[in-house]
Design a protein around this nucleic acid. Sequence first.
DNA 1: GCCAACGTTGGC
DNA 2: GCCAACGTTGGC
Length: 156
Amino acid sequence: MTQHWLFKTEPDAFSISDLASRPKKREGWDGVRNYQARNFMRDDMKVDDLAFIYHSSCKHIGIAGLAKISRTGLVDNAQFNPESRYFDPKSTPDKPRWWMVELEHIETFTEILPLADIKQIPDITELGLVKKGSRLSIMPVNASEFDVLLAHAKRS
DNA sequence: GCCAACGTTGGC
DNA sequence: GCCAACGTTGGC
């Protein structure tokens, strides 16, 4: 059973076009340091699951494109690098704390589907983005809402 | 830059 | 295990 996801990113740090310009259009999604988000990646994601890429903390906030999960079960090596802002002194290579998946770019939407518009769509009620207080950087999207959002994103 | 809401830490 | 204090997130 394929699931659907949404990954937040700050485009100043890593954007949908950065993903598209990587070799094979793929990149490991490192730097997640939240247990719930990690658990989604480590326990629930499957190769070929689809994922929206969402731009946050920027001028044009919203869903910017579509990707898929290309690899799972990867260790986020930034946790072992003392130079990295994602370094975790409590994690060891024997027993890594932080795991990630790899994403592969599928499509950059012609226009970003703005958060303000998403909030106006009557069918979108379950999505974490529109729920008060949700700060998850990675969240599931149920199948019907995923279809609605994809239709809106392609229409704009 | 503000600030509400949330997650994490650490003393007890 | 509680909970206050602190740090972070992220829209506005």
